[in-house]
């Protein structure tokens, strides 16, 4: 406070130095001494200063509301441009498997299917791993000087550009994983999910890479949730003779469940909207395949791979599919926001 206080005095004096005289409209300058008149009036000053104050307030308010407006505008613009396709194809767009730029007939069911299936694979892998790692890094299983750099490194995974991950996927990950797919296919091929000829560019490959990308989100939010739980809970459970893992599984995770669910929803939204790895790894095949080892397509891979050379109607259809993605991610994100808010309110 002392340091802060002295800084303030210097700053404000400096400011007064630049504009040494207050607005004096309401002051009785002349009847009193100059120094007296400077501190004379307590009336509200309709001066440059108060105008500046008011103006600044309104400027920031407009900008703040502008953020909400940008969100609304993004939704509106995509909807407006997709309108011709919505009018032409209606809700049938969501259930049709045809994507024919020659006849100009479009339906996005395979892409919607691919989006949901690859995101589901990613969650299936990332949720147990993410929650497990969050627990491992919250509890003192390893000393802090190891935990801190590990957490830091995990945060950096989010920073890897997805196009770099896609490049790595094509040239490193797919050659690496192929033998494992062969084994999976020959042992579990009787399950429809792993049937057929295993392919490198496939729903499963995209699902795994998406899992790599979303696992840090689940870790960081789950970890934050676990850290914010009151220490009395842990003490209470330990004092009841619960082991550390019983405390985690029976008390801490249930108590932080809404935060964990929120993190999973956010990760789900991120997986659905991820574009570059999808366009580079899923194989861009317009079909619905039960087997995860076959190529497929997602809404994002469809838009990324076709938009450049699309004709007028095709562009509208692509924007329509974008609108579908927008609705899906908005629902998931709003749901996640509400769950996390609810958790914070309970706190």
């Amino acid at each position: 406070m002392i340091v802060g206080g002295s800084t303030i005095v210097i700053n404000v004096n400096g400011w007064n130095g630049k504009q040494p005289v207050y607005e004096c409209k309401t002051m009785s300058a002349g009847t009193e001494g100059a120094t007296q008149s400077n501190r004379g009036s307590l009336e509200k000053r309709l001066s440059k200063q108060s105008l500046l104050d008011q103006g600044f307030f309104w400027l920031t308010l407009v900008m703040a509301i502008g953020i909400a407006a940008v969100l609304a505008f993004v939704i509106y613009e995509i909807g407006r441009s997709a309108l011709p396709a919505i009018q032409t194809f209606g809700l049938g767009f969501l259930f049709s498997t045809t994507w024919d730029p020659v006849q100009n007939v479009y339906g996005a069911l395979p892409q919607i299917y691919g989006t949901l299936v690859t995101s589901a694979i990613a969650l299936f892998l990332a949720v147990p791993i993410g929650v497990g790692v969050a627990v491992f890094l919250t509890e003192d299983f390893v000393p802090g000087y190891i935990r801190t750099p590990i957490s830091f490194a995990i945060e950096l995974i989010v920073a890897i550009p997805s196009v770099v991950l896609g490049l790595w996927g094509i040239f490193v990950f797919i050659p690496f994983i192929r033998p494992f797919y062969q084994v999976l296919n020959s042992t579990l091929g009787w399950i429809p999910l792993f049937a057929g000829v295993p392919r490198g560019y496939s729903l499963l490959t995209l699902g795994i890479i998406l899992a790599i990308m979303i696992v840090p989100i689940i870790i960081s939010i789950t970890r934050g949730t676990l850290l914010s739980l009151p220490p009395e809970l842990r003490q209470g459970a330990m004092a009841m003779g619960a082991t550390r893992w019983e405390t985690i599984i029976r008390v801490l995770i249930p108590a932080g469940l809404s935060g964990i669910i929120g993190s999973v929803m956010l990760a789900f939204g991120r997986a659905m909207g991820e574009t570059m790895v999808a366009a580079m790894l899923v194989g861009n095949s317009n079909r619905i395949s039960i087997s995860l080892m076959n190529p497929g397509a997602t809404i994002t891979s469809l838009i990324a791979s076709q938009f450049g050379e699309a004709g007028r109607t095709q562009v509208a259809a692509l924007l329509y599919s974008g609108l579908v993605l927008m609705v899906l991610t908005l629902l998931v994100n709003i749901f996640a926001e509400m769950i996390i808010k609810k958790f914070q309110n309970v706190e």
Partner: peptide, 22 residues
Amino acid sequence: VRFSANVLTGVPAILAGLFAYS
């Protein structure tokens, strides 16, 4: 505003592209 910003963070990057295209 905060709520909108959080939702905006979750809007897929490609949709920001579609917005700017449109």
